[in-house]
Design a protein around this nucleic acid. Sequence first.
DNA 1: GATTGGCACTCGGAGGGGTCGAGTGCCACC
DNA 2: GGTGGCACTCGACCCCTCCGAGTGCCAATC
Lengths: 339, 339
Amino acid sequence: MVEDRRLGVLRAIVEDYVQTHEPVGSRVLVERHNLGVSPATIRNDMAALEDAGYIAQPHTSAGRVPTDKGYRLFVDRLSTIKPLSSPERRAIQHFLEDAVDLDDVVDRSVRLLAQLTHQVAVVQYPSLRRSALRHLELVPVGDSRLLVVIITDNGRVEQRMLDLEDALAEHVVPELRARLNATVAGRRLVDLPEPLEQMVSAFPVADQALVRRVIRVVEDTLAEATEERIVMAGTANLARSGTDFTQTIRPVLEALEEQVVLLRLLTEMAEDSEGVAVRIGRETRHAGLAETSIVATGYGAEGDPVARIGSLGPTRMDYAGTIASVRAVARYLSRILAG
Amino acid sequence: MVEDRRLGVLRAIVEDYVQTHEPVGSRVLVERHNLGVSPATIRNDMAALEDAGYIAQPHTSAGRVPTDKGYRLFVDRLSTIKPLSSPERRAIQHFLEDAVDLDDVVDRSVRLLAQLTHQVAVVQYPSLRRSALRHLELVPVGDSRLLVVIITDNGRVEQRMLDLEDALAEHVVPELRARLNATVAGRRLVDLPEPLEQMVSAFPVADQALVRRVIRVVEDTLAEATEERIVMAGTANLARSGTDFTQTIRPVLEALEEQVVLLRLLTEMAEDSEGVAVRIGRETRHAGLAETSIVATGYGAEGDPVARIGSLGPTRMDYAGTIASVRAVARYLSRILAG
DNA sequence: GATTGGCACTCGGAGGGGTCGAGTGCCACC
DNA sequence: GGTGGCACTCGACCCCTCCGAGTGCCAATC
């Protein structure tokens, strides 16, 4: 009973603080949420919550503010999911359906999510590691350069220019293209090196140097493209009015420019049973993000996501709303990609 | 004589203000720059400069601050170019030479420029409008989809997936590919529509619908890709310590997210005889950028740039240094692209 | 005519002090 | 366990004063 009420108090504190951005005191708490007890009781509860580390006082005569631990409990056990309205859902769907290619889908998704959450949205490009090759294209350029275009089954396209020392023998390219594609098509990236290696010996010795170089480039490109890219939108939302978050902006922007940091975070984040991962404040394990939380989830095939999408904002964010938005966008994004 | 000294005073004010970020008074001015006259004289000069609109007082009992007009005069006539040191030049060159493809070159350039200027760097992708088509590739995907890959002569690659209503007839693709390439290769984008249109009739009537669809996609893609992309780095530099620029951050970030605005700006900016374009404060004609200046220049072929690169920061930026950095990076970038 | 020293004046910013009120913790009581 | 009462704390705010940087102007000087 008492325990239940205390959790209710914590929930109320989080909700109020998220809304007002000001430490919340015992009186306004009983006024706004009809808790059925007096402020004094709430004060006792608050003292207990503070002892347990869920809330804290910025200074002696101020109200309470949730700690990271408090938000964590709130997210894990206290918040209820806010489903999006069906007009919202339809808007999302239509907006994403108009996309013309992978780049456009990703771009639209990230903008959309930024707009829905009023925060910074990040989308990781579909991973090449998981995907298979669909097609390799070789395009001679001038007489001593070769453009290698690599197309994967989820629509990503990578290209690389190859400078050759010698002029290109006419006959090699078509054959190389044919053999490469025969070897490569439909195979997963991880399975490539061996078959490619075996392929070399099928060529006349004179051409093997060239073949090796092309293979090398393909492998390099794939290795490099596997280092994922991230797209981001809504950074202007960091500088929202009426927050001291403005002070914290610099380190956050820096962290955002360090795509490596973000990638690590997105990759590490374990999803809960609902398929959504949340890191709160210092849980991000990154100094610049000490007052920042991230909500992320995978997208792509159900149960086997190709990459992640997420939203990033102050720890005092609207977790329920953000989680709902992230999930919704991820779901529609997955649907589009599968379609 | 007097006029010369006044310009000297303006230069000194700009330089001091850029360095200290504080309104500069008559006394410190004579102390720091040995002007050989007394503060009273400087005060007279300042009054004259203020009447002419080159400087202003934030409030009655404060020193002077350059106006946009003052910076403009400074940039046009008073500042001397600061050449980069040769280690710096070598570092730039090496850093850019390690790039593996167009994306990487652009990415490295923009990061580099952000680091050199400690400001926000922007790079516009090489324009498709100016470029010619090198190759068109059609890749059947499954039995009712077609991936169209478009490669331009400056190494850009665009792709688009095409959903077909009917299953794809085997024979069409190779022929279509061959004809398309024969029609298209080496032609400038602007010259495409007519030849493509004429090409259709060369196909059997049964295939013409498909051919038209493919052509349509190619044209759409090019039209869309011609809407240039912009890459940006160093946004964290907006939140530098010790500036009230922090207040102005929001609108700037918003302007930066509106790529359209930036593109218009970059495109509009006229270059001076040195090949560098500078927009100062309100000259940007954008509310959010009222206290922001942009230094930009073209890159690519000498005299016929394919796109632009620039650096953006507070009006009180180090113009000489920024201009030098922008030019240097643009020059090496051009060299790499030509190479 | 340009320059200069002198001087009165302005005004923002820092610092000190006082008030206010939100919020707390604790205690006696129900 | 819950409640009302009460003393206490302390930041936010306002007001005031003081200080000094910086100015504009003027009469004197080069």
